[in-house]
Amino acid sequence: MELAMAADDLKTVVNRLRRAQGQIAGIIRMIEEGRDCEEVVTQLAAASRALDRAGFAIIATGLQQCLIEPETPGTPDREEMRARLEKLFLSLA
């Protein structure tokens, strides 16, 4: 399943991923500096949410494409596509 995202959607997802990347780098520094466990876990949760939101945005785009684009020869049928998208969604849940 190919994913073609609109420029605005792509920018949003990439920004979320960059934010998570920065948070993870910060978490590594916190651990290396021996920072408080509660602060580290709080930042881990924030990074995890950022990654989840990026994943959900990608899945939402896939759902939108699946519903809008007509079936063409060689592409999975709607039921197969639904099952694949459901599996992706559940992998983030």
Rank of each mutant, 00 (worst) to 15 (best):
P73F: 11
R53T: 10
Q64G: 14
D52H: 07
P73Y: 10
I58R: 04
Q65N: 13
A57P: 02
G55V: 00
Q43I: 05
A60Y: 06
Q64F: 08
T42L: 08
L51I: 08
L67W: 13
G62Q: 04
Q64Y: 14
T61H: 10
E71W: 13
T61P: 04
V41R: 06
L44C: 05
D52W: 04
I59V: 07
A57H: 03
A57E: 01
A47F: 03
L63I: 14
C66G: 12
D52Y: 06
T61A: 11
L63F: 12
P73E: 15
R49S: 15
G55K: 00
T61I: 12
L63Q: 09
V41G: 03
A54E: 00
Q65H: 08
Q64L: 10
T42K: 07
G62E: 09
V41M: 07
L51R: 02
Q43V: 00
G62H: 05
A60V: 08
I58K: 02
A47C: 05
P73A: 12
L63Y: 07
G62I: 00
A46W: 01
D52P: 02
E69I: 07
T61D: 08
G55E: 03
I58V: 09
L67T: 12
T42F: 04
A45H: 11
L67G: 12
L63C: 08
Q43A: 03
Q43C: 01
A47D: 01
F56S: 01
G55F: 00
A46E: 04
A57V: 03
L67M: 15
L67C: 15
T61S: 12
D52V: 07
I59L: 06
L67K: 10
P73T: 09
E71L: 15
V41F: 04
V41A: 06
A47S: 06
I68S: 11
S48I: 10
A46H: 03
L63A: 06
C66S: 15
A50E: 05
F56C: 00
E69Y: 07
G55H: 00
L63G: 06
T61E: 12
A60W: 09
G55M: 01
A57K: 00
L67Q: 15
A46N: 02
R49V: 13
I68A: 13
Q65C: 11
S48V: 15
A45I: 11
A54F: 00
S48K: 14
A57Y: 01
A54T: 03
P73H: 13
T61N: 11
C66N: 15
D52T: 06
I68R: 13
Q65L: 06
R53S: 09
L44Q: 05
A45R: 12
L51A: 08
T72A: 15
A50F: 00
A60Q: 11
E71H: 13
A47R: 05
R53Y: 04
L44I: 09
Q65A: 10
L67A: 14
Q65T: 09
Q65Y: 05
I59D: 05
E71M: 15
E71R: 15
P70N: 09
A60I: 08
L44Y: 04
